[in-house]
Simulated scan of single mutants.
Amino acid sequence: MVKLTIVGRVRDALPLAKGTRYLNDEEDDDDLFSQRKQQAEFILNEISTGSLPSSKMTIRLHSHSFNYIVEDGVCFITLCESSYPTRLAFHFLQDLQKELLGKLDRTLIHKVSKPYTFLKMEGMIGNIRKRYIDTRTQSNLSKLNADRGQEPKVETDYMYAIVERRHRLEALKKKALMTSSRVVTASDSPLLELIALKWMPITLVIFGAVVLVWSNLILSIL
């Protein structure tokens, strides 16, 4: 079943709306729900940075899967049990995309700046979700039968692999930043600049004196 749904803006990874919390009794605790929500927001951020495909994908997570689609700069993410048919999960996302983008002002979608601004979306998300709770309804069976024999062209990855890649990338960025900070030129260092200003006149005087003595010595020989 569909357990969590988040809608977000791809441009800056801003979450726009979320569905009502749906967890079964064994998972009915605030910590787990917050963790799943953070993971969905992490996926949105990875899409925004270009680290994940900007079309659609399935991401495996233990006994669950995140599925998402992107349309017109808006990402629709849902968390389902792994046993839930992937085709139905994407049908749910497509229905959600058509409903929300059809009713909401797209100009407003691209203007808002606060996370989860569209509180009214929660009711729309809940209504669409109800259609997909029971996979054995005539409507859902028809969708599955229509897709039978057609494997959906959806990339699949694992959450742990995505997180690991992000950690490696951040470590490389940190290393590069530390390396560049060690390379300090005289113009970049106030201390070196102060030393140069202090000793430059003395150096010029000494150099001039040496040149003068050398010139007098050459003239005396001649």
Rank of each mutant, 00 (worst) to 15 (best):
I43Y: 06
F76R: 00
A171W: 09
H62S: 13
V2P: 03
I6D: 00
K120C: 11
K103C: 05
L204K: 14
F42T: 10
T86L: 08
S220I: 08
H62V: 13
V210T: 04
L96H: 00
N145G: 06
E155H: 13
L52E: 05
I6A: 02
L197Q: 09
S55W: 15
H62M: 12
K173H: 13
D134V: 04
S181N: 11
A17K: 04
P190H: 05
M178N: 10
Q97V: 05
L191S: 07
L88G: 02
T49N: 12
M124H: 11
E26M: 07
R21T: 06
L16M: 08
F76K: 01
H167V: 14
D28Y: 15
G208L: 11
L96K: 00
C80L: 09
S187F: 02
V163I: 15
D147I: 00
S187C: 00
V184M: 08
F66H: 02
R11K: 14
R148D: 09
T135A: 08
M124I: 05
K143G: 00
R168E: 07
P15G: 00
D147A: 05
E170L: 13
D25N: 11
R21A: 08
E99C: 12
A186H: 07
I125Y: 02
R148S: 12
S142G: 10
E27H: 08
